[in-house]
């Protein structure tokens, strides 16, 4: 009888011990996706583009057979580290506020003799457009972990912030979408894709601080120009020119709002 009592007590304890496990909350769909994305983090194919970009910077190319090593990205000729987190900014030589991609076009033309307008009209991932994307991947990787710190000293930089803000709230197209339609509030998502609020700092490695990025779903490396282009496509707008004022102005608006956010570019996206 005592043996049976001990056995019964042991069984009772065993049953109690398993209860907490059974009472655990089921994983939400969002948790599952976050876990899956964490597993993918290692081995970001963006590294392949970083390697290509570094090679393109240091290789003599184009009609002038020159490298890009004298290109001024805002911190002086040839200074790459830290340049990404201060773009877009005003450049005295072109008298324009420029983002990374349009600045690369300037350098590819003046230093290497390429035709900037021709590259701007080339579809993404073709010809020298692919070079611009690879360069963007490498240049942004050189600022990984640094905090967004776009300058707002020059009058043009301030003006572009104001233009970017107006562009952000511009309702248009057959669906009346603006950037703010999706990115104007906290805690929203489209289907299962979380949407950062870009009217303010959405946090480290989010929004502006997460591009350029490698998109697993299409196996493509996307620069911010490409990201904005596809945003406008989804908004049912007409086609934004590569490096056009609206794209640079929006980058200034988002980048200044993200001041202090840690850049994780080039990142990995679905």
């Amino acid at each position: 009888m005592r043996t049976r009592l001990i056995a019964a007590t042991a069984a009772a304890f065993a049953a109690v011990a398993t209860l907490p496990l059974m009472a655990q909350q089921p994983k939400t769909a969002a948790d599952g996706i976050a876990e899956y994305r964490k597993m993918l983090e290692d081995g970001n194919p963006a590294e392949l583009f970083e390697a290509k970009g570094e090679e393109l910077w240091k290789t003599a190319r184009g009609p002038k057979n020159a490298t890009l090593e004298a290109c001024d990205l805002g911190l002086g000729p040839g200074v790459v580290k830290g340049a990404w987190v201060q773009l877009p900014r005003y450049f005295a030589d072109t008298k324009k506020v420029q983002d990374l991609e349009s600045r690369l076009l300037t350098c590819m033309q003046t230093l290497q003799g390429f035709d900037a307008a021709e590259i701007a009209n080339t579809p993404f991932d073709r010809g020298e457009q692919a070079s611009v994307t690879a360069l963007a991947a490498w240049i942004s990787s050189s600022s990984r972990g640094m905090k967004m710190a776009l300058p707002q000293k020059h009058a043009e930089e301030k003006r572009f912030y104001e233009l970017g803000k107006r562009a952000f709230f511009f309702r248009g197209g057959p669906m009346d979408f603006s950037c703010a339609s999706c990115h104007g509030e906290d805690g929203k998502r489209i289907r299962m894709q979380d949407l950062p609020n870009l009217t303010k700092n959405p946090g480290d490695g989010v929004g502006f601080a997460a591009w350029p990025a490698y998109r697993v779903s299409s196996g493509e490396m996307w620069s911010m120009q490409r990201r904005l282009n596809d945003c406008f496509r989804q908004q049912r707008f007409p086609y934004p020119g590569f490096g056009s004022d609206v794209t640079v102005a929006l980058a200034v608006y988002m980048g200044v709002n993200a001041k202090g956010a840690e850049s994780i570019a080039p990142a990995l996206k679905r």
């Binding site: 107006r166 562009a167 309702r171 707008f237 086609y239 020119g241 056009s244």
Partner: peptide, 29 residues
Amino acid sequence: MMKASFREQGIAKMDRVEQDAAQKACSAA
């Protein structure tokens, strides 16, 4: 800037950046 920065592509024509009264009134923060 909105007019000058875009071009038509496929079925997306430039009339898409012409705002009607409702869109215009709702284009601010």
